[in-house]
Design a protein around this nucleic acid. Structure first.
Lengths: 209, 209
DNA sequence: ATTTAATTCAAACGTTTGTTTGAACATTCG
DNA sequence: CGAATGTTCAAACAAACGTTTGAATTAAAT
């Protein structure tokens, strides 16, 4: 067994503690202690606490969005000249994210909780990074979405996209509450079932009225 | 003009800074400075920083949930012996919350951002307070909801309720991003328009398939 | 093997943190 | 009035914070 590098151990520990305690609540001392690494290693490898947070985000966000786009393009190719079904567009958008959020080997659940917290953090650099990522994805998805929802006014279109993001983010970030409030009826560990349920809900909402 | 009491000034300042910087990011010194109050006043009036946070929450949550239940009961009375329409049940659930979130005189926008942040905070006391509040509301709404959605399996029912909470929370907490990503097309200050748009989307999703 | 560079480490830096203290001030009540 | 209670205040507390430093150690290159 070859043990993980210092950098990776710091990233893993940061992800976990940023998610649990928030970006200001998690201290570098707690992080380095968990990573079994010297305190100064953070500044040596990442420069500062802020840059460390950016690195934690980039490590997961870049592959995720690449996978979303890849998935959409696969559906587009399969559809050939016809337009992609709404269900498939939505699946390409929320499927990869939800699958990542449930993939423990990639720290998914933890990362998604962190992401959920950061959405409301007003730190300028973090916000720029997040909205930048979102716009990249949106630009790729917008044509397919409008094609699948031709009757929708622009105003309703963007609002419903906003609602979609809310449902998706909430489902990814908070996977245990649903088990609690449903009295165990719903199982968030059934990833594909959750995705299908979410896609159905979202398509119903997007097509409403 | 009669100026606000020390306690209220502390609550106002705490709400704003907890929302902006997080519960651990906001320092008591920043809070008391903003409130124009002595540092020790927090401990005198509230006991500790943690109890202060609880007080900030209780001040808004208790009236909000009372208003939700009041609104649902008004619809039930108007419906008489018939069951309440789904649109009205949802309006009673999300309407008061969204109206509060847009009511500047009650610090709504600020409070909702705080609420959005706290949902993912694992602090035990905060979590107990939040889920307790939610369960109180759910218990009142569940009969009306299942009556309006008779064909829905329990599993789908709870999942969709979960998605609903996500859309609602996201819309309440983050009122400026929608303006940004829509290029100004959507106006989050149009409270009633937003509510109607959200209700339509949610009912569409809840009734899907 | 010797030099050079990359990495780790313990220790300390100056701030800022939540909390406590005891005296000063204000208000209320007998 | 004076006693008593409620409230504010400046100052200090120890602890924890992010960051820096310079020497010790390891790895790579010559």
């Amino acid at each position: 067994m070859t043990k993980r590098s210092t950098k990776d151990r710091i990233l893993d520990a940061s992800e976990a503690l940023f998610a649990r305690d928030g970006s200001s609540g998690a201290s570098l001392r707690a992080i380095t202690q968990r990573a079994k690494v010297n305190l100064a290693a953070v500044h040596y490898h990442f420069g500062s606490k802020d840059y460390l947070l950016e690195a934690v985000l980039a490590r997961r966000l870049l592959p995720l969005n690449a996978e979303r786009i890849r998935s959409l393009e696969a559906y587009q190719q399969k559809a050939g000249r016809k337009k992609v079904r709404l269900e498939n567009v939505i699946e390409a958008m929320v499927g990869p994210a939800l699958r990542l959020s449930r993939d423990e080997t990639k720290g998914g659940r933890i990362f998604m909780r962190l992401l959920g917290r950061l959405v409301l953090e007003p730190d300028a650099r973090v916000q720029k990074l997040l909205t930048g990522q979102f716009e990249t994805v949106l630009k790729k998805f917008e044509p397919a979405l409008t094609a699948a929802l031709p009757h929708l006014e622009p105003q309703d279109f963007f609002w419903r996209l906003h609602f979609l993001v809310g449902s998706m983010a909430h489902t990814m970030a908070d996977s245990e509450r649903i088990r609690l409030i449903s009295g165990g009826i719903c199982d968030p560990d059934d990833t594909e079932g959750t995705i299908q349920c979410l896609v159905t809900f979202l398509c119903g909402g997007l097509r409403a009225k």
